[in-house]
């Protein structure tokens, strides 16, 4: 479905943020597939407390967007589809130059899930996918460094950095597949940055059928234990 069609269907909204990464939900006019009715048959979790079915990004009951992208650390193409029947998917979108700590905060949710999965024996039931939308700067070595900085076990089988080949491809994925506004901007207030990406702090959780169980639009601030509990429920029920 074409999510762009409903960015713009509803009135102009003001938007303020103090951070280079935006925390929020983007609403739209229609969801297109109407699969977010309560008790969606392909989901394990109950419908979320906050109905996000009108949002422009995938939400409860939607199919996880099908993406095939290189994992530069293992030099293999990873597809979101390959986990169907095997692993739930917890996915987020970052860039390692993120100046205000929001991308590390997103990464923390995935990293804690990795830790608890190892402790509780469900490491093989979840795939942790972190896509950079800044492939021009986020090279393989940069991603490895980022993993160390964030305490991620990037060598584990359940962790994949995904790196689109080009900026344009990253932009297409973010705007069309994920349904979020996306823009490269100047970063005059950061001496060490030539440009940055104000972006939404979205985390997606899909079950082993590839159906979205949760979209966390406040992914950088949501209680990590909430995300972990949801993942554990999805993989163990």
């Amino acid at each position: 479905m074409d999510r762009r069609t409903y960015l713009g269907t509803v009135g102009i909204a003001g938007l303020t943020s103090v951070a280079g990464c935006l925390d929020g939900t983007i609403g739209g006019g229609e969801t297109g597939n109407g699969s977010s009715d309560s008790g969606a048959p392909n989901t394990i979790l109950e419908p979320p407390e906050m109905d996000l079915s009108e949002s422009s990004h995938p939400s409860y009951g939607d199919e996880l967007p099908s993406l095939s992208l290189p994992d530069p650390l293992i030099d293999e193409t990873i597809s979101t589809d390959q986990f169907e029947g095997e692993r739930a998917v917890l996915m987020t979108f970052v860039y390692t130059n993120c100046p205000d700590g929001m991308c590390p905060a997103l990464t923390l949710r995935l990293r804690r899930t990795q830790e608890v999965a190892a402790e509780n024996g469900f490491s093989d039931d979840v795939a942790l996918l972190e896509m950079t939308f800044d492939p021009e700067r986020d090279t393989e070595s940069k991603l490895r460094t980022f993993a160390d900085e964030q305490g991620v076990d990037a060598e584990a089988d359940n962790w994949h950095f995904l790196r689109p080949e080009t900026y344009d491809r990253a932009k297409t994925i973010m705007t069309e597949d994920i349904g979020l506004p996306f823009k490269k901007t100047d970063a005059p207030e950061y001496d060490h940055l030539e440009y940055m990406f104000p972006h939404y702090n979205l985390i997606l959780l899909a079950n082993k059928r590839g159906i979205v169980e949760r979209a966390y639009p406040n992914g950088a601030s949501i209680d990590p234990s909430k995300v972990i509990d949801d993942v554990e429920t999805v993989v163990t029920e």
Partner: peptide, 22 residues
């Protein structure tokens, strides 16, 4: 609670981070 609900196309102009608190 750190959440912003947005209806319609948000403008990203001017949302330049400051590193200050959410």
């Amino acid at each position: 609670a750190g959440v912003m609900a947005v209806r319609g196309p948000p403008s990203l102009d001017g949302n330049t981070g400051t590193g200050e608190s959410q």
